[in-house]
Amino acid sequence: MDKKRPLVALVAILSLALLYIPSIAVAIFSVNNSRYGLAWRGFTLDWYKLLLQNEYIHQATINSLILAVVSTIASTILGTALALGLDRYPWPKTLHRFFDISINIPIVVPDIIMAVSLTLAFSFLRVITPIFELSLITLIIGHVTFQISFVTLVVRSRLASLNQETDEAARDLFASDFYLFRRVTLPLITPGVLAGAMLAFTLSLDDFIISFFTHGPDSVTLPIFIYASIKRGLTPEIHALSTLMLLFTVVLVVIAERLSRKF
């Protein structure tokens, strides 16, 4: 199609503008030499310097990262196991349907309802053991809960594209259960597992609502910190922080795109 349609192009560019103007504004204000107010007062990197010295932000960043890494590892293992168990073993139909529904709930249901359920769950479980007091641990548990479904989804779709005949060929060639898993199944699902892990990681870093409901007083994550700052009063350090977060996202997306080309 080689007709240039100016109207379409215009709307497209306006849409992109809608998506990026806020981010660009944040970036601009992160180097604006003015603490309050929105007038331009010159370029400065002071806010970035302040940012790097801010203890609270350090803590929040560390929390976000630990949370993301730990929850991703746990959910990837659990999600992959679930996907393998579901796909590779004979289940009666009703049980299969039960599995499917359970897995699909976090994907389909709005975040806030998940958050409310988790709050409820923790309040019950707290009675049994104090592990479930709101803290980094409950944060991690909460994240893993919704991440499992996404990982299972991705790994399952990868499993579906694998042929049963490949397994049969391996058996025909004297492979034991373990050998089959190690040399055939695992290598073939690795791209899916990695994709699932990346998805879980990004979902965790980005999450606000569930974190909001399941964090403890000393386990603040970056999005929560920023939200609290909005209520308290925005400072340019926050703009600097947000700009850095934006840049990080850009890098992640580009890397993901490059990696996905390879597979």
Partner: peptide
């Protein structure tokens, strides 16, 4: 005996080569 214990090997119709 399961297939993995038989001295019999198969060439499958779709060849079933290990893609990796």
């Amino acid at each position: 005996l399961p297939a993995s214990k038989r001295q019999i090997n198969t060439v499958f119709q779709s060849y079933a080569l290990f893609p990796h």
